[in-house]
Amino acid sequence: MEQRDNPSAESVALRLQWLRDYLGLSQTEIASSIGVKTTQWNNWERAHNRLSLTGGLRLGQVYGVSLDFLFLGRVDTLQHTMRTAWLSSPRVNSSKKSSENPDT
């Protein structure tokens, strides 16, 4: 299984946006569910600030997503339905395409 270790703030933000969309939650709802302010979540999701370890741990406790996925993009740590959704995501497919072939 492909491992894409990409810890950049922008890559983490992409995974946070995807997770929230996958869960069907607003920024306010997901922020509240893990005990942070909406502005903090927004800063993480826009890569203005890096996701904190505490925030990542809370996401894991509440939604079952691993730190390896959040910080490194390791999809093999996701439960099957999440992994399938992630791999079929248009954002993921377009970012894979652009990273594999910079001319596309």
Rank of each mutant, 00 (worst) to 15 (best):
M1E: 00
E2C: 01
R4F: 07
N6A: 09
P7D: 10
S8F: 08
E10A: 15
S11T: 13
V12R: 09
V12G: 02
L14W: 02
L14C: 08
L14I: 15
R15I: 09
Q17N: 11
Q17E: 06
W18L: 10
W18F: 12
D21M: 12
D21P: 08
Y22A: 08
L23C: 09
L23I: 11
L25D: 01
L25K: 13
L25R: 11
L25Q: 09
Q27M: 12
Q27K: 14
T28I: 14
T28H: 07
T28D: 07
E29C: 12
E29F: 11
I30T: 06
I30S: 02
S32T: 12
I34W: 00
G35P: 05
G35M: 01
G35H: 01
T38W: 02
T38C: 01
T38M: 02
W41H: 06
N42A: 12
W44I: 11
W44T: 07
E45F: 12
R46K: 14
R46N: 06
H48K: 15
H48N: 09
H48C: 00
R50I: 07
S52H: 00
L53Y: 07
T54K: 12
T54P: 00
G55F: 06
G55M: 02
G55S: 00
G56A: 09
G56K: 05
L57N: 02
L57G: 03
L59P: 02
G60W: 06
G60Q: 10
G60I: 13
G60E: 04
G60A: 09
G64D: 08
G64P: 02
G64A: 07
V65Q: 01
S66E: 02
L67A: 12
L67R: 11
D68Y: 10
D68S: 10
L70W: 04
L72A: 09
L72K: 10
G73D: 05
D76I: 12
D76G: 04
T77G: 03
Q79K: 14
T81R: 13
M82Q: 11
M82A: 11
M82G: 01
T84L: 13
T84A: 13
L87Q: 13
S88T: 13
S89G: 08
R91N: 02
V92M: 10
V92Y: 11
N93S: 04
N93A: 12
K97Q: 07
S99K: 14
S99W: 08
P102T: 15
P102H: 12
P102N: 11
D103A: 15
D103I: 15
D103E: 12
T104P: 05
T104F: 10
